[in-house]
Design a protein around this nucleic acid. Structure first.
Length: 227
DNA sequence: AATTTCACCAACCGCCACTAA
DNA sequence: GTTAGTGGCGGTTGGTGAAAT
């Protein structure tokens, strides 16, 4: 498959966006909406940016429904648990954290959460206690069970996401005009949220009692199982 | 006060999936 | 069936400010 490079055109600006550029992009999107990103820069006089850069700036920064600033404890828990389930599928994780962008979650994971897990002797990739890590023997059994459970859940969730993707595509093709395109998630039977050994790490930092509501309970489940 | 090191995060890059011609 | 164009995703980089020396 051939691909034309997007951002190698001479004369296109790179690097941080200026307030003026933000203003131009915002004004344009407010007026025309965001449709064809590639065509957008040519419509915007004076904006020497490639469409890809415009899209990124919009989705990660300018979108009005973006929540910025510190992550709450609840959000941290959600990220950790979803990462245990989904791995580095940041966009999928972001859909479960309302108003957070995948880029922001990814950055937060790489700069904060990953290090914390490592410090706790937990492998941030597998979410299992790292070999040789100081984990209590009683916990070992629990951790192993939890890991096995999470592994199974991960497979389940992957399959579910694929199915959802297919369904979403099919439904948009079939009923493009009439049907709302919101994706409804189907219930998954999660074990106790605390089964992920790494979640316990959040408690001492906050010194507060955790309200360990299942992170995925923030999802809007419906009762029907059509899969 | 000057310099170095570290941490954070916005933005870039390359790849993939999908679609239209 | 093939090719080219586009949007989106995840990994990575580089600029900047804060902290340490």
């Amino acid at each position: 498959m051939g691909r034309s490079p997007c951002c190698d055109k001479v004369g296109l600006k790179k690097g941080p966006w200026t307030p003026e550029e933000d203003e131009k992009l915002l004004a344009h999107i407010e007026e025309h909406g965001h449709g064809s990103w590639r065509a957008l820069p040519s419509k915007l006089a004076g904006l020497q940016r490639c469409g890809k850069s415009c899209r990124l700036r919009w989705t990660n920064y300018l979108r009005p429904d973006i929540k910025r600033g510190k992550f709450s404890l609840q959000e941290e828990q959600t990220i950790i648990q979803l990462h245990a389930l989904l791995g580095n599928r940041w966009s999928a994780i972001a859909t479960h954290l309302s108003r957070r962008t995948d880029n922001e979650i990814k950055n937060y994971w790489n700069t904060h959460l990953k290090k914390r897990l490592a410090k706790m002797g937990i492998d941030p990739v597998t979410h299992k206690a790292a070999s040789g890590a100081p984990v209590g023997t009683a916990d070992d059994v629990r951790s192993a069970k939890a890991a096995a459970s999470l592994s199974h859940m991960a497979q389940w969730e992957s399959a579910r996401l694929e199915a959802e993707g297919r369904l979403a595509r099919e439904s948009t093709m079939r009923t493009a005009a009439s049907t709302p395109t919101s994706i409804t998630l189907h219930p998954i039977n999660l074990p106790e949220p605390t089964t992920s050994p790494c979640l316990g790490m959040l408690q001492p930092w906050q010194g507060a009692k955790l309200d360990l509501e299942s992170p995925t309970s923030t999802l809007t489940f419906i009762g029907n199982n059509n899969s």
